[in-house]
Simulated scan of single mutants.
Amino acid sequence: MTTPNDTKVTALIMAGKRSGVLDPLAARADVAQKCVVPVGGMPMIERVVANVAACDRIGEIRVVAHEPEEIAAIPSIAKLVEEGRLVFRPGAFNLVDSVFSGADGATYPIMITTADNCLWLPDDFAEFVDKAQASEAGAAAALARKEDVRSADPEGQKKFYEFSDGEFSNCNTYWIGSAKALSAAEIMRGGGQFVKFPKRIAQAFGVINLVRFVLGWGTKEKLFAQVSRRFGFKMVPLEMDNGYCAIDVDNERTFTVTERVLARRSGAAA
């Protein structure tokens, strides 16, 4: 099965590193960057690339990285490069400019995900693409409901966005439908992590939307509609079926959680 309009999606996998800072997980694993830290016996970037590549909605894969050599040395990734399926794009000083670098010359629509989204499966990427296509949105963000995240693992996430229709967690996967909608990436210029730093919402979305967010006024769809008017194109939240989509490898706690979920998944398959 392909996407509803038979258009293959370009995947951007963000695999950069903070300038001058060695991630604690990378230091413990004795590697140069977090994205090659083994999780469940496999470098996390290799796992994400494999699951993206196995999704039939995805065409070209672009890995945005500051140090691509270490990633390119992974045999399965080298094979995709040789086949012409995967290319590397240079990471920039910050996340937003890295997205712009990755998207330069790409075919739209674009799906953006991160190299530490180790729990996403090909069917999850297909679900996200199908829902984004069906929404006809210029830009979209994947969210998971709190109950589903906690069902995947009670320690999966500590904080959630609160709306009148429930509490949700960001899944670090985004949809950019056109070159015009790429401006939505500016939302992340302050660094994202709006639950930890809600003042960043005022910078990205405006003060009124900050008040709505903090007080939990309205549904997630209503807040995204307000943001859509600010940016001039349709932006929508896409609720994922599986709560594990909101669990990425961010620190020791989530590393342990991810390995635990992968182990349960392997046990179920066996």
Rank of each mutant, 00 (worst) to 15 (best):
A54V: 08
A103F: 00
C35W: 02
T256D: 13
G232L: 01
V49W: 01
S19A: 14
V129S: 04
P75W: 05
N251K: 10
G192C: 12
P237E: 12
A137H: 03
I247M: 00
R200Y: 09
M44G: 01
T173D: 10
N251T: 05
T219K: 12
P4K: 06
A126I: 08
M14L: 15
A103W: 02
R264K: 14
L215F: 15
V63T: 04
E83R: 13
A15Q: 03
E82V: 03
V31W: 11
K158N: 10
A103Y: 02
G138L: 05
P43E: 03
F168Y: 15
A92K: 13
I112A: 09
A65G: 03
G206D: 07
A137S: 14
P122T: 08
K220V: 13
G138C: 10
I112E: 04
V37W: 06
M44K: 01
R18A: 14
P75K: 10
R264C: 03
S101D: 03
T10E: 00
W175Q: 13
Y244V: 02
I77T: 02
A134D: 08
V96L: 07
R57E: 05
Y174K: 04
F168H: 05
V37N: 03
V249N: 04
P75V: 09
T113A: 03
F231V: 14
R265M: 07
H66T: 11
A184G: 13
G156Y: 08
S266R: 15
D56S: 10
N209T: 11
K234S: 13
K131H: 12
M1G: 13
K79Q: 15
R145Q: 15
Q157A: 14
N51C: 10
N209Y: 00
